[in-house]
Amino acid sequence: MTINTFVPNPISPRVLGHRRSAIADQLQSATGIMLGCFLLVHLHFESSILLGKDAFYHVVQFLEGGMFSATGHGYPWTSQIISLIMLVVVMVHAGTALRRFPIQLGQWRALRNQQQIIKHSDSRLWFWQLITGFGLFFLAPVHLYDMLTDPSIGPNLSAERVYHGGLWILYIVLLPMVVIHAMLGLYRVLLKWGWINQRTLLRKLTMIAIVYLLMLGLASLAAYLSIGAELSLPVTPYTPS
């Protein structure tokens, strides 16, 4: 433990308001909410595979604007545009969140020291939010880059990507990280701006959401793996019979 548990050396009397920090704080919250909501929708759309190939096909067809295309399948570039937008949002979120990160070794030590001495569950949850956030900083762009360069989505195409492309390894790490980070983040942002004050209830809901989303995500991943295992290469895109 640190012995001289430092005191702010005569705190600087020059304290000025910074527009930038206010804007950064709002941007961080806003992009966080966007990403959290996007994740909720994303995981649900993608889990439609659990209802069968047809269901997933129709979801993708609808989202890719199937009704406007001559073939009826839709345009994969819609996924690219969404990926691009999300990449920008992720970057803004990461940029604004990074200023909170304990960059100096001393800060990291102070944090660990305090966590060893003081038991506080919400701070510990935040610590996990920090760790998963750090991991996502590297993993989320990988996933988005993949979707940008190869936007083909469909019951067979996605299963091929997951199984033959070996992307299940990425997803199995990405899923718990993103679910934990996003749900804890939504919990915190609601309290942070005072939009919700029933903390105990909100915390319960957060935990339920984490477990539910993890199960949903894992089940969908298993479904893609089993579809992928049955496919022989080269894969032909699925069309409903």
């Binding site: 920090s21 506080h120 935040w126 942070k192």
Partner: peptide, 18 residues
């Protein structure tokens, strides 16, 4: 705002609730 409207003030709080 000039005193706490910054990173060392209210916008530095991360709502850890300790």
């Amino acid at each position: 705002y000039h005193v706490i409207g910054n990173q060392d003030g209210v916008f530095g709080c991360m709502t850890l609730l300790g």
